[in-house]
Amino acid sequence: MMKKVIDRQLELGGDKPEFYEVFARRDSAEPLTHIGSVEAPNAELAEARAWFVYDHHTWREMCIVPLSAIVTITERGSKSKVKVV
């Protein structure tokens, strides 16, 4: 049987995946809290993945921030990620 050849770029697209940090709150009294992160090649896919992966609550508000947009202050120069609270 002929071995299937996988073209990684064709299958995954040309974009390099990026981390997006996910923040959410269950109601307006709660602070917006970091609940985790997803990896995706663009914001649309990150939005869908965040919504489906972190579905353990009925969130009133959820948003995502690309990790690259976060300016670190205390951890400047190190490669630390945003940590789940």
Partner: peptide, 17 residues
């Protein structure tokens, strides 16, 4: 969110010529 999923994939796939 189903539509976001497919639109995101379409954009990603298109990045390969």
């Amino acid at each position: 969110f189903h539509l976001s999923y497919s639109v995101g994939w379409i954009k990603a796939l298109r990045k390969d010529s």
